[in-house]
C-alpha cells in the first residue's frame, strides 16, 4: 500500500530547486513575482515589465509577424502576469517558464480572434492551469483529519521542510492562505500546492499505519 502511495506522488522534486533557489535572490524574476503577488508591489512590477516587455514583443513578432499584434501581446501578457501573480507556483517551474506559458496562451487567443476562427476552445481550455481544482479538495478533507491529531503529529517531522512550514502556518498558527504566503514569502499558488502535497502525504502515512 505505501509503495503504491509513493508512486502516486507527483515527481516535482527536480524542478523545485531551480525556482525556489532563485527566489532567495531578491533581484530574481521569481522574487519580483512574489512581491507582485503578495504585496501588489508596483516597483517590482515595473522592474519585471522592463525585463520582459521587449522579450515578449520579440516573441510576438516571431509568432505573428505583426507589430500591432505584438504590442497588444505585451500589454495582454503583462496584464495577465499582474492578475495571476498570486497563482504562480515556484514548484512548477521558473518565472520565465510561467511568463512564457501566459504569453503563449494570450498569443493563441489573439491570433484566433484575428483570424476569426471558431471560439469553441480558448487557450485556457487547451493549457489548463493545474492545482487549483485540487486545492479545493484540501478544504473538503481537512475536517476528517482532526480525528488523527496525535498520529499526525508523529508523522509531521517526516515531511519535507517546505511542506511542513506551510502546514505549520495554516494548522498551528491558524493563518489564512494569503497571510501564510506573505509570512513565508512564497506565492499563494506555491503555498496551495505544497499544502496539498503535505496534507496528502500525511493522509497516506496515517492510512498506511492503520
Amino acid at each position: 500500500m505505501s509503495s503504491a502511495a509513493k508512486k502516486d506522488m507527483p515527481a516535482v522534486a527536480p524542478r523545485t530547486s531551480a525556482a525556489t533557489a532563485a527566489a532567495r535572490d531578491p533581484d530574481s524574476d521569481e522574487s519580483l513575482l512574489i512581491a507582485i503577488g503578495n504585496h501588489q508591489d508596483r516597483t517590482a512590477f515595473n522592474a519585471l515589465f522592463t525585463r520582459f516587455s521587449n522579450k515578449i514583443y520579440a516573441m510576438g513578432m516571431k509568432l505573428t509577424r505583426n507589430d500591432q499584434l505584438s504590442h497588444d501581446l505585451v500589454q495582454e501578457a503583462m496584464l495577465t502576469v499582474w492578475q495571476k501573480a498570486p497563482l504562480y507556483d515556484l514548484d512548477r517551474g521558473t518565472a520565465q517558464s510561467w511568463i512564457f506559458t501566459l504569453t503563449r496562451n494570450r498569443c493563441f487567443d489573439i491570433l484566433r480572434k484575428m483570424k476569426r476562427q471558431p471560439a469553441t476552445v480558448s487557450a485556457d481550455d487547451i493549457w489548463p492551469q493545474e492545482g487549483d481544482g485540487d486545492s479545493q479538495l484540501v478544504h473538503e478533507e481537512v475536517g476528517t483529519m482532526e480525528v488523527e491529531v496525535t498520529k499526525i503529529e508523529s508523522f509531521y517531522g517526516d515531511l519535507p521542510a517546505a511542506q511542513r512550514a506551510v502546514i505549520e502556518q495554516i494548522y498551528i498558527h491558524d493563518r489564512t492562505h494569503e497571510e501564510a504566503a506573505a509570512v513565508l514569502d512564497i506565492p499563494l499558488g506555491t503555498l496551495k500546492s505544497r499544502l496539498r502535497l503535505g496534507v496528502g502525504k500525511l493522509r497516506q502515512m496515517v492510512g498506511a499505519e492503520q
Partner: peptide, 20 residues
C-alpha cells in the same frame, strides 16, 4: 509603456483561477 503599466496595476489580482 508607462501608461500601460499604470492601467495594469489598477486591475484587481486573482486569488483563485476562475477557469475552474
Amino acid at each position: 509603456f508607462s501608461g500601460i503599466i499604470d492601467s495594469i496595476v489598477k486591475q484587481p489580482q486573482l486569488q483563485t483561477d476562475e477557469q475552474a
